[in-house]
Nucleic acid binder design. Structure first.
Lengths: 204, 204
DNA sequence: ACAAAATTTTTTATTGAATAAAAAAATTTA
DNA sequence: TAAATTTTTTTATTCAATAAAAAATTTTGT
């Protein structure tokens, strides 16, 4: 039973985000103006500000939508019974990079990272961090599966391990988008090295 | 044999960075204007732009200077013979957080991270990343010491391990500055959990 | 030491993000 | 349907960023 106002608002949100996505992809982040987005969405520039605060806020909103899809995709495509922890991680990292690149280019992803770190504590950044947690949790659950399958010691705290590995993956992801020339293969190799070294520490 | 021009330029650079540091600390990043920095430094606003490109560029210049000191400090204060890899890491992370907080507050550090990720490939970002590498290398050398002391398997690639751990530390550092309420102790605990979980993977 | 050449800074102007307050328009409610 | 409420738009301002022309200063060649 949504009111007319609520529906109109929802509608404007959609128009703004959709227009922004098109413009960001066509002309990049910098060259896209708030006025441009507003015009394409049929609202005033100030309304865009009222809705999303900043240009980066609009971008964040759009990324949040696509990240929800990413999580669904990961839930379904990540192997339920991974062969090993390393395999799981590499697959996880690759899926995330693939998804990122399919949606926006590296230059724009840098703006996303910047927006998230500077953005204070807003509705949008909270939503983003929540999705990040969910993403990490996908990993945690798969790690528990590995433990159940006897492929990983059951004594390890799956939550701690999942979060640590997620942070590491995230660091490599940021490195990936920060340098134009870095390929997914190159990052995969680095991650492989990371894991090999880290996992070798405990072996007596 | 520096020319008058070169000396004047160096002088202006110093005045700009020094003025900026004072103003950033007094009023924060947002409330400090380029014009304000320029006035305090006795140059025009456009000159500040000419020298550092953006307001964040000025901040980055100032951080780079203080990071050089951090590296020196770490070289001298990190134990030459650490008791364990975990101890080494926790000390490393704590020194970095201490140094960061002693110089600028969290809000401003967020701007640093944002500036580095969006900053394209400029003189300043290159310098910053180079220092980051040096920082990682400090860790690598200490890890080699651990291996020489028989406290860590000599089969492990110290460079890979050091870089992986540096990335992890960096991720936790960014988390630290991203949330006002997160204390160094809290981050230390998380890092401890990270390391415990990661190092347990290899143990058979 | 001085005038011409080269470099650097400043002035001036423009675009666009962000924000605030008042005015206008639309929806909701009674 | 008219009053009350909410939302958007208009209007105005500050500041970052950038560009081009003008002014000032240093360097160079004689």
């Amino acid at each position: 039973m949504s009111s007319l106002r609520a529906r109109q608002k929802e509608d404007r949100r959609n128009r703004i985000v959709t227009s922004a996505k098109t413009l960001f992809r066509q002309q990049g982040f910098e060259k896209t103006t708030i006025e441009g987005i507003a015009e394409a969405a049929g609202v005033s520039g100030v309304t865009v500000h009222n809705y999303y605060g900043t240009k980066a806020g609009v971008l964040l909103a759009l990324v949040i939508e696509s990240d929800k899809l990413l999580i669904e995709k990961l839930e379904s495509t990540l192997p339920k019974e991974p062969a090993s922890l390393t395999d799981l991680m590499l697959q996880f990292a690759r899926d995330i990079m693939d998804h990122a690149i399919a949606n926006l280019d590296k230059v724009i992803w840098r703006q996303v990272i910047a927006a998230v770190t500077t953005g204070g504590v807003t509705q949008l950044t909270r939503a983003y961090f929540k999705l990040d947690q969910q993403l990490a949790f996908v990993l945690v659950r798969r790690i528990e599966r590995l433990q159940q399958a006897g492929k990983l010691s059951p004594d390890i705290d799956a939550s701690h391990l999942g979060k640590a590995l997620f942070h590491l993956q995230n660091a490599r992801f940021i490195q990936f988008i920060s340098a134009d020339e870095l390929s997914r293969d190159e990052i995969e190799q680095r991650l492989r090295n990371d894991l090999a070294a880290l996992f070798a520490v405990g072996s007596v």
